[in-house]
Design a protein around this nucleic acid. Structure first.
Lengths: 209, 209
DNA sequence: GTCTATAGAGTGATAGAC
DNA sequence: GTCTATCACTCTATAGAC
């Protein structure tokens, strides 16, 4: 068999184009051209443009979950679990930047059934984080708070790294992961002197409906 | 003059459709239909689809900056400034959810010149946060850290709220803003016992190139 | 300021030869 | 498994009547 199959070549070309131009702006012709074939030939490997998008998103979500489970395996202490989960999330998103970007921005291109399949996987992934946060809160390791909102906050914070990260930039994947780790653990534990007092609601005037 | 101009009606219809379907997936015909006119008539008000997108994004960015400046006006103490900035950012994003979502996801639809104009505005906005973080760090109020990365973290964290927030949901805008405020201030100050020690880099095996 | 009509290009997808 | 050719449709945008 060949080093890489045409199916994988198309996949990679699609990931690249969906990332750079967006799912709707990238055409089947372009993807085929980037793969070195004509557009009609592409339909031998994927039955539709949407099927190609779904194949990418499904595999990304499955790999993401597998990576998280591998990162958490054997770790019991709750702060260590949170650190490992954050580190794993950041690693995966920075190393597979394009796919993760697509997985977070192109869900609208999916059919209803495929959309549900991807969202169910995403929900299961988020639940792992919510469980760690809830356990830590009940153990008194983390400050009181809303598990769901905090999980969204943590996940999007790390995910966002993928949108500005440059592989040969100033900071390495692990350095960035460590910055996020410390920020998040501190945010969850709550620094001294945080009262939660509500300050004045400034200038709603500048905000329209 | 009319209560709302056709130009504004089109603007609102476009915001709604760009938000729900994405810029490329939403057509001029749909926007016109939602505005109660034919598509040819739309070109009397906006010279192209891209001009319509730019008008929305430019105004959103200008209003965002104006809102931040109003929130910070007269506040000197650094922690209070950070709280006010976060609160203002969350308020604006939750109250003008759709426009902000578009401003964060549809930049690829702009011409090069218009893209630059929006990005310059976004950079200026981010610099306000970086300045607060840097000042706080130098004053010793916040822990050592990377101003830029922390500013991206803070901004995307709050921005993300706009993607799951429901105006008549369980929590109000101000309650959400307060959760973020406390999380961020804690993250910046750093909780006790955070050493910054690097834990093992787990299972790069599950992550492909 | 809105309309009908249409230009001109590109889209996703299919038929059928090789 | 890739090709050429084409279908049926949609898209942004324009011309010109009213």
């Amino acid at each position: 068999m060949p080093a890489v199959s045409m199916k994988d070549t198309i996949r990679q070309a699609a990931i690249d184009l969906f990332y750079r131009k967006g799912y709707f702006a990238a055409s089947i012709s372009e993807i085929a051209a980037a793969s070195g074939i004509r557009k009609a030939s592409l339909y031998h490997h994927y039955e539709s443009k949407e099927a190609l998008l779904f194949a990418i998103l499904k595999e990304t979500m499955d790999d993401l979950m597998a990576h998280l489970e591998a990162c958490l395996k054997g770790i019991e202490e709750i702060e260590a679990r949170m650190r490992a989960a954050v580190r794993g999330h950041v690693q995966f998103h920075l190393r597979r930047q394009k796919e993760n970007f697509i997985a977070n921005s192109e869900l609208r291109g999916l059919t209803e059934a495929h959309y549900q399949a991807v969202v169910h996987r995403r929900d299961a992934y988020e639940r792992v984080f919510q469980e760690i946060i809830g356990t830590g809160r009940r153990q008194g390791v983390f400050a009181p708070g809303d598990d769901k909102i905090l999980s969204y906050a943590i996940l999007t914070l790390c995910t966002a790294g993928a949108s500005w990260f440059k592989p040969d930039g100033r900071l390495s994947v692990d350095e960035i992961a460590e910055i996020y780790e410390n920020f998040i653990i501190s945010g969850l534990k709550r620094a001294e002197g945080i009262t939660g007092a509500v300050i004045a609601d400034v200038s709603a005037s500048a905000v329209r409906a």
